[in-house]
């Protein structure tokens, strides 16, 4: 998927559209969430989480966390394997927005990128359990197997220089099959 290399010059919507045009079946269900489209998150939580995740893995010439589908990864797991972390996300995201209102009088998603970076640093300090959870899940979604909804089109693997393996074996069938639990 060529588009992801140019991700930095595209808006998220354009990037998503380009991804879909690339024909990746993976994009279905990973992107373009409409209102209420998430398995667990609500839209407000998703906006705040996007702001945090995109500070953990910001965009450069390769996509940011949310552009690579990390929100889909986390949301999907909060409905599955990470059900036990639901309360931590509910509380952590609302406290992140509370901090944002206290300091800047606005939702976290509405802050400038430098303000968001400062706020994430503050969350890391003051609510380290929540931050560490989100950091782990963000990096799992970004660097882990695309089958779980993140790392769209294996973009992080291409970023680090780990190309397609010379022998693909079953991998091609697995990818076509889509998400595992």
């Amino acid at each position: 998927m060529q588009s992801s290399r140019d991700g930095v010059s595209l808006t998220r919507r354009q990037f998503v559209a380009a991804g879909a045009m690339g024909g990746a079946a993976l994009a279905v269900g990973c992107t373009g969430h409409n209102q209420g489209d998430w398995d667990f998150l609500n839209d407000e939580q998703a906006r705040t989480l996007t702001a945090i995740c995109d500070q953990i893995v910001p965009a450069d010439d390769f996509p940011s966390a949310s552009q690579a589908g990390v929100l889909t990864y986390i949301d999907r797991q909060l409905a599955r394997h990470y059900r036990r972390h639901r309360n931590a996300y509910r509380d952590g995201l609302s406290s992140a927005d509370a901090m944002s209102w206290q300091r800047h009088g606005r939702d976290m998603a509405a802050l400038s990128a430098p303000q968001q970076a400062q706020l994430v640093a503050a969350i890391e300090k003051e609510n380290s359990a929540f931050f560490n959870l989100v950091r782990s899940h963000t990096l799992e979604g970004y660097y882990g197997a695309p089958r779980h909804g993140g790392n769209r089109d294996a973009v992080s693997w291409r970023m680090v220089g780990m190309g397609e393996p010379p022998v693909r074996g079953r991998a091609q069938y697995d990818e076509r099959k889509g998400a595992a639990s």
Binding site: I56, A117, V160
Partner: peptide, 16 residues
């Protein structure tokens, strides 16, 4: 750093 652009760049620089 544990996160942010510097972490991403280190992944890129040192993975291989």
């Amino acid at each position: 750093p544990r996160w942010g652009l510097a972490h991403k760049k280190a992944m890129r620089s040192f993975y291989k």
